[in-house]
């Protein structure tokens, strides 16, 4: 039994280990280890395409995770006090957002936004004052953020709602019995209790957005995120530079994930 578990862990971690090992390759061939060096990390970090893609990915992940945590938490709190068809509709939307494959979300967003933009852009141009360049709505950073926020918001609602339902209802009752305003109760009782869940939701959203390839592939327009860059480089061939980028990405997500886990666990203990 133990031996079996060990084998599965090796299966899970050997590929990651191999990537990490070969990222320190001194040679230029991807699959022949010729001494150790950190040159490929330097090359990756000095590659302007990599840095541009990284910047785009970071901005998109940060903004969409922030919006998703904010609106997702608001929705989770609002849903608590709602019954009937409105609640059923919301539950249905969250279920659909999670269940529909990312690739379908990607193409649907692409064709819907392109159609809407084609329709709206001439209108805006016509209304714009003479001599000033009218704004041209296009697929890019905005559509990336909007699509990622939609999906990760559903995640945040689920995570925060689980924490809210595990919360002792008498606490908020006590608070309002003691004449706290609803907002006061929220700020001083509810928020501190659900905060670990919100933060965990934020970190998971960030990781999802940062690692997402398939939605971004469709809605990024002319922007390149890091996963899109990595995918197109892999298509051109395996290089030690990709190993270095991959190792850095895995290490970064690892740090975020462990933080999210610790936060969720700490929240559990408090409860």
């Amino acid at each position: 039994m133990r031996l079996y578990a060990l084998c599965v862990y090796l299966f899970l971690y050997i590929p990651i280990g191999v990537i990490a090992l070969f990222s320190f390759n001194a040679g230029r061939h991807a699959s022949q280890l010729q001494g150790l060096s950190t040159q490929w990390y330097g090359k990756a970090l000095n590659n302007p395409f990599v840095m541009d893609a990284l910047e785009t990915s970071l901005i998109v992940a940060l903004v969409s995770a922030t919006l998703a945590s904010l609106f997702g938490t608001m929705a989770a709190v609002g849903l608590q006090g709602i019954r009937g068809p409105m609640r059923a509709t919301f539950d249905g939307l969250i279920y659909v957002a999670i269940m529909i494959p990312g690739i379908v979300i990607g193409i649907a967003t692409l064709i819907a936004l392109v159609t809407i933009f084609d329709f709206v852009n001439p209108g805006i141009a016509a209304m714009w004052p003479e001599g000033v360049e009218p704004p041209n709505l296009n697929m890019g950073m905005g559509s990336l953020i909007a699509a990622h926020t939609m999906f990760t918001m559903a995640l945040v609602v689920i995570i925060v709602r689980a924490r809210l339902s595990g919360m002792d209802a008498t606490l908020t009752e006590a608070s309002s019995d003691l004449y706290a305003t609803p907002f006061g109760t929220f700020r001083q009782v509810t928020l501190p209790l659900i905060f670990p869940a919100i933060l965990a939701g934020f970190l998971l959203s960030f990781t999802f957005s940062f690692d997402d390839f398939i939605i971004a592939f469709f809605v990024a327009g002319s922007e390149t995120t890091l996963p899109i860059y990595v995918f197109s480089s892999i298509r051109r061939g395996v290089t030690p530079e990709i190993n270095a980028i991959g190792t850095m990405v895995l290490a970064a997500s690892l740090v975020l994930l462990v933080t999210a886990q610790i936060l969720l666990r700490r929240g559990d203990k408090k409860k």
Binding site: D211, P227, I242, S253
Partner: peptide, 19 residues
């Protein structure tokens, strides 16, 4: 240790197998 890989980039983990 089992869950963590799921939340890391599936792109890079699949790439590892090309290798």
């Amino acid at each position: 240790l089992v869950i963590v890989p799921f939340w890391t980039s599936i792109l890079i983990r699949s790439y590892a197998w090309i290798f």
